[in-house]
Design a protein around this nucleic acid. Sequence first.
DNA 1: ATCCTATCCTGTAGGC
DNA 2: TGCCTACAGGATAGGA
Length: 280
Amino acid sequence: MPELPEVETLRRMLDSRVRSRTIVAARRSRSRLHVSSRGGALSALVGRRVERVERRGKYLIFRLDAEHALLSHLGMSGRWLFFDRVPESPMLHVQARLEFSDGTRLWFQDPRRFGQLRVLVGGALARDASLTRLGRDPLDPPLTGSELAALARGVRTSVKVLLLDQRRIAGIGNIYASEILHRARVDPRRRSLLVTRAQWSAVAAEIPAVLNEAIDSLGTTFSMYRTLSGEPGGFGDRLRVYDRAGERCLTCGSVIRRIVQGQRATYYCPHCQSRGGSGS
DNA sequence: ATCCTATCCTGTAGGC
DNA sequence: TGCCTACAGGATAGGA
């Protein structure tokens, strides 16, 4: 579900909601959260104050004090939800519950349990393999064409698969990869080795453009994603190709295609995103 | 090293 | 209506 814009939206809302709040209770509600066992017990959070909430790629980091942090990844279906009091109707798939000293609550819900939640103590945050593996954030500072070309050097996979590689650029997921390539008019099947300098520049320019536009809309709600307050994101209306197979391209009227690359769906316009097409 | 595949899990949409 | 299958925004281990 969540890519950089959704995670950044959550980060901003979480930061304004829970910064400076002190955790008085922290419990896992389910023993088997994916990859969760690598971290310490949630009870280590009790009595600590949230200093700020950060993001790296698609990961959220709740900074507590110099020694303690809570690392969270939403996987495909994770949500953070904030409540002034315990909700009246029971909720399914709540994996963890935090309570603050003023009675407010922060719950982590994750039906598919691909999400991650772990408490990192001491140097564990700096050493965490899933964070050290990450490539650079495409927004800060905005990625440039020459940088992207350098990142792609020696890569033999398609440009779509490259954009999803978190070790090179951290934060782009399946929806925005298709959207970025459509706006840049680059064929997603194109081998990275064969992408021209001008095309890398076009892709690099669209990456921050699309991601920032999506952040402004509070992300894309395809089905599961919700903001901290439970609202859907607004970028779904702005999608030009994702999940639009069989529909018309808004630019040229051609029929949008769906293909599979690396076991994931890719959507593209065969006319706008072809070498000789109206693209570059 | 790099690439590719299978896998983790539940919910939902669509065909029959 | 119900049953069945395919698919879903992700990361990662392990084999080639």
